[in-house]
């Protein structure tokens, strides 16, 4: 009798587990998983518009993939060009961001410097992350415009107007700078949390041994921060691959100048929401983006699983 009650109890609670997770899974399956699978499905079909006429959907096998990797009239393979653009703009923003954040995180956590007013500094530095990327982009588009304040300063000093958005590297640089400005506060907080997670006794031991700050940074902080650095870099890379809002507004849907600021997601958007509404091509492109981020996600997953153990192991080793 008692056994029966127990059995009954556990069964009824299991039921509640399913009930509690049901809304999440139902919504995920309907609005994300099914669309994801049908995106894959569409990638094997020819389906687009010419004017008011609709072509397809006709099954074409891997034809969409073939045309995705086919060179255009000038001999460039667009998907590689746009992947390259995305990566270049990500690196231009991410490298200075990482250096800045690392310096800031060390300054904040330094027991030697004992920085005051930390809450104020952190609050201000994190703020750009919450500002609408579209608004940020619009503001910079205006600031660096041909008649914008920056050019007004240049011309009032006798310089010639710089067409920032008509030159490849200034346009890319401005996009990268906006990304840098929006994300360095976030990275700083993550790295700080990482540094504060390091066993304080290691720093004390190093101090007793007479290590300089420089040695402490390279021999203790950096190696023990490595797992969280990997995490930060890879999540930033995945975010970078999704770059859209800022270049879309600065470079418009053409990725001006000359497609040099066109990112992968902008390319996808052009196929999907452009006049051709090319479901087949945008499907194939989505699959490629999915594969690229999928590979990176596996690395993130692995680094997340090993993250909590790594510092502990090294700690033991140090002792």
């Amino acid at each position: 009798m008692e056994n029966e009650v127990k059995k009954h109890k556990s069964i009824s609670y299991a039921k509640w587990g399913y009930i509690f997770i049901a809304p999440f899974f139902i919504v995920y399956i309907v609005f994300q998983l099914i669309p994801l699978l049908s995106t894959f499905y569409y990638s094997f079909f020819e389906s687009y518009r010419v004017g008011t006429q609709t072509v397809g959907p006709n099954f074409v096998g891997f034809e969409n993939y073939a045309s995705l990797f086919a060179p255009d009239r000038s001999g460039t393979i667009l998907i590689f060009k746009y992947l390259g653009n995305t990566m270049i703009m990500w690196i231009l923003g991410a490298v200075p961001q990482l250096l800045f954040s690392l310096v800031l995180a060390v300054i904040y956590t330094s027991s030697r410097l004992k920085i005051k007013g930390q809450r104020f500094f952190k609050t201000v530095m994190y703020m750009p992350n919450l500002i609408m990327a579209a608004a940020f982009a619009m503001l910079f588009f205006q600031l660096f415009g041909n008649i914008g304040p920056i050019n007004q300063i240049i011309s009032s000093n006798g310089g010639e107007t710089v067409q920032f958005f008509n030159q490849v590297w200034t346009a890319r640089g401005i996009i990268a700078f906006i990304n840098f400005l929006m994300w360095f506060g976030n990275t700083t907080i993550l790295l700080m949390a990482g540094i504060m997670g390091i066993d304080q006794s290691l720093f004390e031991a190093a101090e007793i041994d007479g290590a300089t700050s420089w040695q402490v940074f390279w021999k203790i902080t950096m190696p023990l921060l490595a797992p969280i650095m990997v995490y930060v870099i890879i999540t930033s890379l995945i975010g970078g691959l999704q770059m859209y809002d800022v270049p879309q507004i600065i470079g418009y849907s053409t990725g001006a100048p000359g497609g040099s600021t066109m990112t992968l997601i902008m390319y996808l958007n052009n196929y999907l929401n452009g006049p051709s509404r090319n479901l087949g091509m945008s499907g194939a492109l989505s699959v490629m983006i999915f594969i690229i981020t999928g590979v990176l996600s596996v690395i993130v997953y692995k680094s997340m699983v090993t993250n909590p153990d790594k510092p502990k192991k090294t700690k033991k080793g140090a002792k």
């Binding site: 049908s38 499905y41 999907l272």
Partner: peptide
């Protein structure tokens, strides 16, 4: 499952999402 889907960008299912 949730951990694995966490990093899938929403944009890659946009084609199917719009059709849906």
């Amino acid at each position: 499952f949730i951990l694995i889907i966490m990093t899938i960008p929403t944009q890659v299912s946009a084609v199917g999402f719009i059709q849906l």
